[in-house]
């Protein structure tokens, strides 16, 4: 569990991402330098097309950069093989997606358990940690349900449980409240903030939701792929 508040979790140096859209080059991210420290509750905000999701994909190793460098927990992502990157994501990053993205054929318990299974955590410990996490998210009564049988809010709770159960270094959340009503969204954000404060886990959100912006300890605004502002609220 991360505890050193001065430790740099994410460091980006002049990262650029350009992709082609029907032959036209699109500069999604342009020369972004950013350092995110351990335990921060950061929101990357900006209008649609400002490069928020691309930025999140790059810092999690889900996408590659056209130029520049990214260090995650001191490791240079471009030097990692595909397998190392997979293992690194599994062990160090928890993902929360806008569309929940739970595995539909696995029950709630199995969805939350799956990453620990990949990590090789013993069965007894897995079960204990899953149940503890489901309890924390008020989902213990739904352990045997399949995701399609749950409401959007319930699915997002399971997604949060899945992202956090393995106690990753970093939780990346891409528009986590976009498909939720404001009450459910607010509840889940409060929960994540509590977990951030109690565990010291680093959270990075990509959002244009005012509720997230209101709770974030740091607000990084992107505009046209560049950092327009970087505001700390400690």
């Amino acid at each position: 569990m991360p505890s050193d508040k001065n430790k740099d979790i994410i460091v980006t140096k002049n990262i650029t991402k350009t992709y082609s859209d029907n032959g036209i080059p699109v500069h999604a991210v342009r020369g972004v330098d950013l350092t995110i420290r351990n335990g921060e509750f950061t929101a990357v905000v900006g209008p649609s097309g400002s490069g928020k999701t691309t930025f999140l994909n790059i810092i999690s190793g889900l996408d590659t950069v056209t130029d520049g460098k990214v260090w995650l927990d001191g490791k240079l992502l471009s030097e990692m093989s595909g397998r190392e990157l997979s293992d690194f994501r599994r062990d160090s990053i928890g993902f929360i997606f806008q569309a929940y993205n739970l595995i539909p054929v696995l029950s709630v318990e199995e969805n939350v358990e799956y990453i620990m299974l990949l990590q090789g955590v013993p069965e007894k410990e897995r079960h204990e940690r899953v149940m503890k996490m489901l309890q924390l998210l008020n989902m213990e009564g739904f352990a045997d349900r399949l995701p399609p049988k749950l409401s959007g809010g319930q699915q997002q709770r399971v997604a949060i449980a899945r992202a956090m159960v393995a106690e990753p270094l970093l939780v990346l959340a891409d528009e986590p409240t976009a498909n939720l009503d404001s009450r459910t969204g607010g509840e889940l954000l409060d929960l994540m903030r509590e977990l951030n404060q109690s565990t010291g886990m680093t959270f990075v959100f990509s959002t244009h939701d005012q509720m997230i912006m209101g709770r974030a300890t740091r607000l990084v605004t992107l505009k046209d792929g560049r950092i327009a502002s970087d505001e700390r609220r400690d």
């Binding site: 999690s60 889900l62 997979s86 599994r90 993902f95 539909p104 990949l118």
Partner: peptide
């Protein structure tokens, strides 16, 4: 495709 993308994102290896 989306599901495989999610699996890859959360750390499932290609061989799996």
């Amino acid at each position: 495709t989306r599901e495989y993308g999610v699996l890859r994102a959360i750390g499932v290896r290609p061989l799996q």
